[in-house]
């Protein structure tokens, strides 16, 4: 507190303005400090909960979707191979029926 007052006194030209500056300064500083603290707190919480949400959704994705993608990819490869073989052997592709 003392350091602040000295600092305020040094920078201020007149007595009136120095007091004003001091008051505003201290209020802003305390408010700023509070706001900064709150922001840090909130962002910490937010970060933590985002992290948790990401963790849960990531693991869920890993369990539900990744095997499906791999298996579908394999199936597509298999189909392609079969198609290639069919074209090599010269069998006509099955015509679509209405």
């Amino acid at each position: 507190m003392a350091a602040k007052r000295i600092g305020a006194g040094k920078s201020g030209g007149g007595g009136d303005s120095s007091i004003l500056a001091k008051i505003s300064n201290s209020e802003i500083v305390s408010q700023g400090r509070r706001v900064a603290g709150d922001t840090v707190e909130v962002s910490k919480k937010l970060l933590w909960s985002t992290g948790k949400a990401a963790w849960i959704s990531g693991t869920t994705f890993l369990i539900l979707v990744v095997p499906l993608i791999i298996v579908m990819d394999r199936e597509a490869q298999l189909n392609e191979l079969e198609l290639q073989q069919a074209s090599l052997l010269g069998t006509p592709p099955s015509t679509m029926q209405r």
Binding site: L64, P67, L68, V71, R74, E75, L78
Partner: peptide
């Protein structure tokens, strides 16, 4: 439930 030729996946 996804049934493929060589595999089946259920989630």
């Amino acid at each position: 439930d996804y049934i493929l030729r060589q595999s089946r996946v259920r989630g």
